[in-house]
Design a protein around this nucleic acid. Structure first.
Lengths: 197, 197
DNA sequence: AGTCAAAATAAACGATCATTCACTTAATGT
DNA sequence: ACATTAAGTGAATGATCGTTTATTTTGACT
């Protein structure tokens, strides 16, 4: 008797990438309400049924797309991370990397914003996302220990050192305001003034 | 010949209010994607067809609900507005009124956040919303003139004096952080440190 | 009480929804 | 070349979508 082993046809990376991009594009342009599985599939150039090979259902597709972007952002802002720099410089570097990422992938960023303000957000494990941002978070903790940063509640701190980036990257704001290096520098000064002791 | 004048049956305020609340509740709990006209109608205790007496279509229902809340917020934060107070005090009062509003109507606030991060946002006239916040905006302008507030781009300023309120009122953040008067006071100190000269 | 007009609705419209099914295609080791 | 297995799909599923239509109800007026 002949035994056949686990020879399997491998999943197509190009299709996966196309599906990822199509999901983001369609959700950004038409919203969650109008983004049907068949429309996403058509945008990706695949069959609606194929989506169910890569994802359990529509919900899981949307959630995993979100997590993938968040993971991506976390890894990009920590590239060449130098813990030995002064805390202010570390944070400023993260700011510039963040604005650079958003300039390069405005659609990725917009998707995460839309997602995290929707009820889908509650289906994602908060800790799983936070761990992608651990290094920079630890910098803040060190700053508090060293009495460089105000010793206030952590959510309050992040509301001033990270959240303004979101505000300033909002598509509507960016229509009137070009976030060039000079403006980023200015904005970071305000952020640092808010949190520094 | 008998002439009959414009005697019309008036629209039901209770139904309008129920529709308003139902829209917010359903969109918050299930998102735009799962909020159908019939589900909203059922939640409001009216017929789906009745919605089309009050609104041109589904889109207009969602948009007018958003505008109504924004208008409401604008009027509440300007109650007892005293232009003669020091600028810092005026802004602090607005902060407390804003947090008070969100505590009282977390669902209203959540709806506006979800809405303004969706593609629906682009269908709303930016200026129409902004005018509801003119008085407090003018205070910032006066602060710049009087060299009390940093003379930086206006979008950058609002990213630090208003946007952190949004960040701190986020439903997920509020799970871990009780925004009592003490925390609001602390957070406002950071906001003021960011924008003051 | 009777009349009008608009509010309100139940039922129905075609379209589209998420998902499944029966089937074909492609890549692999023998 | 062939057998195997999962990738991949077109078509069909019943359900639900947003909206319209035909009809009934309601309330302010004579």
């Amino acid at each position: 008797m002949i035994v056949y082993f686990d020879f399997m046809r491998i999943k197509d990376d190009i299709k996966q990438e196309a599906l990822f991009e199509a999901t983001i594009k369609l959700v950004n342009e038409t919203g969650f309400a109008a983004s049907s599985v068949s429309k996403i599939a058509k945008q990706a150039g695949i069959s609606p049924a194929t989506i169910y090979i890569y994802h359990k259902n529509k919900e899981e597709l949307l959630i995993s797309t979100y997590i993938q972007i968040k993971k991506n952002i976390g890894s990009v802002i920590h590239e060449n991370f130098d813990d030995s720099l002064p805390i202010r410089d570390i944070l400023k570097n993260v700011w510039f990397k963040m604005f650079n990422y958003i300039a390069k992938h405005p659609d990725y960023f917009q998707y995460t914003e839309q997602f995290s303000n929707s009820p889908y957000q509650s289906l994602v494990d908060k800790r799983e996302i936070e761990k992608y941002f651990d290094p920079v978070i630890n910098v803040l903790l060190r700053g508090i220990e060293q009495k460089i940063i105000k010793n206030v509640n952590f959510d309050i701190l992040t509301a001033f050192i990270f959240y303004p980036i979101v505000a300033l990257s909002n598509a509507r704001v960016c229509q009137d305001l070009d976030m060039n290096d000079e403006n980023i520098e200015t904005a970071f000064t305000l952020a640092w003034d808010a949190i520094k002791l």
